[in-house]
């Protein structure tokens, strides 16, 4: 092995915690869902597409996003539910792109099946809109080498993984997860960065994701 590469700018580990706030609005049919989705705050689109991951990140395969879950479970529209469920969120660089795609899927479905627009669920089964208020906290440690980075990764909570993998990419619009970004720009670990970028955080559990990343880095370090 050559000389250990040292980053000029260290990787600063953060964690995040969410508070859920309801928006006091509900939809009883697709038309109402669509109307609200068009103007909902970004933190609401994020909440409904990531809540399951946050609450059920120990499960695999991951249950779908709230929209898909409601459309299938409450509205009973399996085709649309499948389309919403199978969206590849990794394709989107930010929440606005994700919102546009969600709206398009529902609009297209409604154009083909206009009768679904006003098919309503009984009272008590409505879709309730909520949003996340996200608090970001520094964990108070930083790393400069790949070795230090691996050690830190093994130690951090799933909330921290969650922040660096999801929030930074989609909500802060960095376009890529923090880990890959740092490995690339600071350590010039392009191959490793791409491998981590290609891990699908939406079909892995958070713990599984963490283990895969550790494995990849371990391999890079020790062959």
């Amino acid at each position: 092995m050559g000389e250990t590469k040292k980053a000029q700018n260290p990787f600063l580990f953060y964690t995040k915690l969410d508070l859920v706030e309801t928006l006091g609005k509900k939809a009883k049919n697709l038309q109402e869902l669509l109307e609200f989705l068009r103007k909902a705050p970004a933190s609401s689109v994020y909440y409904h597409t990531h809540r399951y991951l946050r609450q059920h990140h120990f499960l695999s395969p991951e249950p779908p996003n709230d929209f898909a879950y409601w459309v299938r479970g409450m509205l009973g529209d399996r085709v649309l539910a499948e389309r919403l469920f199978s969206m590849d969120i990794l394709d989107f660089k930010n929440i606005e792109e994700l919102r546009t795609a969600l709206v398009e899927i529902i609009e297209t479905h409604l154009t083909a099946n206009p009768e679904y627009g006003n098919r309503s669920v009984p009272p008590g089964y409505e879709f309730h809109f909520a949003k996340s208020i996200t608090f970001v906290l520094p964990l108070g440690f930083e790393t400069r080498t790949l070795e230090e980075f691996l050690k830190a990764l093994q130690r951090i909570s799933t909330h921290s993984i969650y922040f660096h993998m999801f929030d930074s990419r989609l909500r802060l619009g960095r376009g890529e997860n923090d880990f890959s970004l740092w490995l690339k720009t600071e350590l010039e670990e392009y191959g490793l960065a791409t491998k981590i970028s290609n891990l699908d955080p939406y079909t892995n559990t958070m713990e599984g994701l963490k283990q895969k990343m550790c494995l990849l880095i371990g391999k890079e370090l020790h062959g």
């Binding site: 915690l17 969410d18 508070l19 705050p41 970004a42 933190s43 949003k131 996340s132 208020i133 996200t134 608090f135 970001v136 906290l137 909500r171 802060l172």
Partner: peptide, 16 residues
């Protein structure tokens, strides 16, 4: 705790 912190701060993304 998060609720109390949010009552003293603005926005949906809060750095502490």
């Amino acid at each position: 705790l998060l609720l109390m912190l949010s009552l003293e701060r603005e926005g949906d993304f809060i750095y502490l």
